[in-house]
């Protein structure tokens, strides 16, 4: 029983230590791998490699960059993909779990309604904190 108690108490400590270590690397990586693009005075913090892969092949499109709270696991994000794939003008979607971002590409002709996006995110169990739009000519 003592071993179990010690294991139970040690586990969160080990995990927290791992989390701190991860955060240190993460913060370091932020400067090297994350894109800070300015469009119309807005800054987009995105993973550069993921973003470049996402936009490759896209033209005459717009990308909704969603910042979410509560998107902590792959399983949680599955519903987001399923929901937005049904949208008119939908082109592509990508989820960045580490930054809490979702990128959704739409045809340029579509109007992206923030309140509609907010409702869809909430129906999946997360909260929309911010939405920015990027244009891909």
């Amino acid at each position: 029983m003592k071993k179990i108690i010690i294991s139970l108490l040690l586990l969160p400590s080990l995990a927290l230590a791992g989390e701190l270590e991860h955060d240190m690397h993460h913060n370091h990586d932020k400067h090297e791998n994350h894109l800070h693009e300015m469009v119309d005075g807005q800054e987009f913090q995105l993973d550069k490699e993921k973003f470049n892969k996402f936009v490759s092949g896209l033209s005459n499109a717009q990308i909704a960059v969603l910042s979410l709270q509560g998107m902590v696991c792959d399983f949680c994000a599955r519903g987001i993909e399923k929901t937005f794939k049904k949208d008119v003008g939908y082109l592509n979607i990508d989820v960045d779990l580490s930054l809490g971002k979702v990128l959704i590409a739409y045809d340029m002709s579509v109007f992206i309604d923030k309140s509609d996006v907010e409702k869809k995110i909430l129906s999946n169990g997360q909260n929309l904190v911010d939405m920015q739009i990027l244009s891909i000519p």
Partner: peptide, 14 residues
Amino acid sequence: LGIAPYLGDYGDLH
């Protein structure tokens, strides 16, 4: 109580 030994990306095995 659990811990993830690594942080996978979307679509990876977690």
